[in-house]
């Protein structure tokens, strides 16, 4: 017996894509995303702030690691709990479809919405950058797009996991907010731990930091994404806001990609366990 039927997965993915590509919040955020990138790229191109593709992309990182998780969480937070509550999932699972097929179909379908959203944003931004900055570091830009999509899938996987775990839509909303906030407060938590364990402000500004401080990025998908993009552009030392950080060797692009994959797979496996056990 086959573990799953790819056709059923494709059918579910297609439905998810058609239904959510018209989600008004996704449309608004995609538009906002594209607009911010265009404005940012134009500013960069005119030479007022930065001067090249690398700086443009590194500048865009903050925007992407903020907006992409929001889009992914909006798409995925209630995909199981909400549909179970409304009754739509009852109908789907009364058809010859396995839960694993429905779960993976949802990931792929909602992920396709993220891909479209990212392509619209970066596509428009890319054209403006090409016209203003010039065609340098395109490989880095493409890697940046790929890693951004990956970030979207990680947050989608987390959101689906929450949705499979929570019984009700309303609790899924809370879970979604919690996941989003984790990305925001994580840096503060790590810094607090650093000070609590004897770290000083001087250490922080001079980059005299313990190994664990750097490696802690693996526990935050947003920080992980930013570090991976910096690595993709060959950046080894980050100079930001007066601080200077040297990215340790352990955080190589390949290692960071492995951690990305772990962040994608683990929540998805948990989502399947919760979904399989769930009474619909």
């Amino acid at each position: 017996m086959k573990m799953f039927n790819p056709r059923t997965m494709y059918v579910v993915a297609k439905k998810e894509f058609l239904d959510h590509i018209r989600n008004k919040w996704v449309i608004v955020l995609t538009f906002l995303f594209a607009l911010i990138i265009v404005i940012f790229s134009y500013t960069v191109g005119s030479g007022e702030t930065f001067g090249n593709m690398q700086n443009t992309v590194l500048g865009l990182l903050t925007i992407t690691s903020f907006l992409i998780p929001i889009i992914a969480i909006i798409l995925g937070f209630s995909t199981i709990s909400g549909e179970a509550e409304s009754g739509a999932l009852n109908v789907v699972l009364s058809y010859p479809a396995k839960r694993i097929e429905v779960l993976l179909g949802k990931l792929l379908g909602l992920g396709s919405v993220i891909i479209v959203s990212v392509f619209i944003g970066f596509g428009v931004g890319g054209v403006v950058i090409a016209l203003t900055v010039g065609p340098e570091s395109w490989a880095g830009y493409i890697t940046f797009i790929f890693l951004t999509i990956f970030l979207g899938f990680i947050y989608l996987s987390l959101a689906i996991c929450i949705s499979a775990f929570c019984k009700r839509r309303i609790t899924s909303i809370g879970g979604g907010i919690l996941v989003f906030c984790w990305g925001i407060i994580y840096g503060t938590i790590i810094t607090a731990i650093f000070f609590a364990t004897g770290g000083t402000f001087d250490d922080l500004t001079t980059g005299n930091l313990p190994e664990w401080f750097y490696n802690s990025v693996v526990f935050s998908p947003g920080d992980l994404h930013q570090t991976a993009v910096q690595r993709a552009f060959g950046v080894n030392v980050i100079d930001a806001a007066g601080y200077s950080f040297k990215i340790p060797e352990f955080l190589s692009l390949s290692n960071l990609l492995i951690v990305h994959i772990i962040w994608l797979i683990v929540p998805l496996v948990l989502a399947y366990i919760f979904f399989k056990k769930r009474d619909i």
């Binding site: 059923t8 059918v11 439905k15 058609l18 239904d19 018209r22 009754g87 009852n90 109908v91 058809y95």
Partner: peptide
């Protein structure tokens, strides 16, 4: 099967909804 609480997908038309179930 028709469940007690029937619900489908708000952004799809009846044709798209039935297409999905036909394909399933």
């Amino acid at each position: 099967f028709i469940p007690e609480k029937v619900s489908f997908y708000d952004n799809l038309t009846p044709f798209q909804t039935l297409s999905f179930f036909c394909e399933l």
